[in-house]
Simulated assay, not measured.
Amino acid sequence: MQSNSCNSSLSADAILRHLGPLAGEFGLQVRAECASTNSELMDAPPADDGRVHVVVAERQTAGRGRRGRQWQSWSGGSLTFSSLWRFAPGAPVPAGLSLVAGLAVVRALEKLGVQGLQLKWPNDVLVNGSKLAGILVELQPGRGRTPAAVVGIGINLRLPDDAYIPDQPAVTDLARQLDLVPAPEALLASVLTELHILFDTYAAAGFAALRGAWQQRNAFADLPVRISGEGTDVVGICTGVDEDGALLVRTEQGLERILSGEVSLRAAQ
């Protein structure tokens, strides 16, 4: 249950209270501000003491998203946190890991009553097409045979009126979706609980065990899409994801598997 809080209005004790019987599974560091929660865990990973280590910050000054983008955050307007997950040797990391993380976020938000939630491959959570949350998964350099990954998550709580998010034409926040936005401590505990449940399933049975649940929330199911970022564009119909988390697109040449996370998925124009 050990926690470390540095002059933040976020309460580590409240997070642990909301975690209930799972509190002992997590080691918390609560910050008012840091450069990047992912960098905190990637650059100086805590010793493996059997717990999942979590860094949560009210504000990130150099938050990172996919493809080198900056993750925008505002004090009180966003929940930004990263968690370090270590898996047993032989676990299927990293196949489909970011998709499982997205599913955990959606499950937590669905239990709060958020409607219209969708998943955009490989790492965005949408509400009726507008971005609500993003995920960045980074693999830890090999230490022995234990695979490990840092999972960074940012959820928009209350965006300021003048918020500008590059490359995101449509964004939303929980304040637009719910009459009452939950306390960030309760929301964090809920997401961590879902991550704990789903990553246990993932470690034992791989992404295949969760593929159906992801497919049900696929934002682009059976829609025309364009994949760009790998030199040539791929245009076709999104048919879902494979058992290893690869995106499946039916093109004029046949079914193509998109494996790289360094691509952009958009509706075809």
Score class of each variant (00 low, 15 high):
I153H: 02
I155N: 00
N156D: 06
N156F: 09
L157N: 00
L159R: 12
L159C: 10
L159K: 09
P160E: 06
P160D: 06
D162H: 12
D162R: 14
Y164R: 15
Y164E: 14
Y164P: 01
I165G: 05
P166A: 12
D167P: 05
D167I: 12
Q168A: 15
P169Q: 15
P169N: 10
P169G: 15
A170I: 08
D173C: 15
L174A: 04
L174K: 10
A175G: 13
A175Y: 02
A175R: 13
R176S: 13
R176L: 13
Q177T: 02
Q177W: 01
L178N: 09
L178V: 09
D179P: 02
L180C: 11
V181A: 04
V181D: 02
P182V: 09
A183C: 04
A183V: 02
A186R: 09
A186W: 01
L188V: 12
S190W: 01
T193S: 14
T193A: 14
L195N: 02
H196I: 04
H196T: 03
H196R: 15
I197L: 14
I197M: 11
D200T: 15
T201A: 13
T201D: 08
A205S: 15
A205G: 04
G206L: 10
A208N: 02
A208S: 14
L210S: 08
L210H: 09
R211A: 13
R211Y: 04
R211W: 10
A213N: 03
A213L: 13
W214Q: 05
W214N: 00
W214A: 05
W214S: 08
Q216R: 07
R217C: 10
A219Y: 04
A221G: 01
D222H: 11
D222F: 09
L223Y: 03
L223D: 03
P224V: 14
P224L: 11
V225D: 06
R226N: 03
R226I: 14
R226K: 13
I227Q: 01
I227L: 13
I227G: 05
I227F: 03
S228C: 13
G229W: 07
G229T: 15
E230T: 14
E230L: 13
G231M: 11
T232Y: 09
D233N: 14
V234R: 00
G236F: 03
I237P: 00
I237D: 00
I237G: 00
G240Y: 05
G240H: 03
V241N: 01
D242S: 12
D242N: 08
E243W: 01
D244I: 13
A246L: 14
L247R: 06
L247M: 07
L247S: 08
L248M: 11
L248R: 06
V249A: 02
V249L: 05
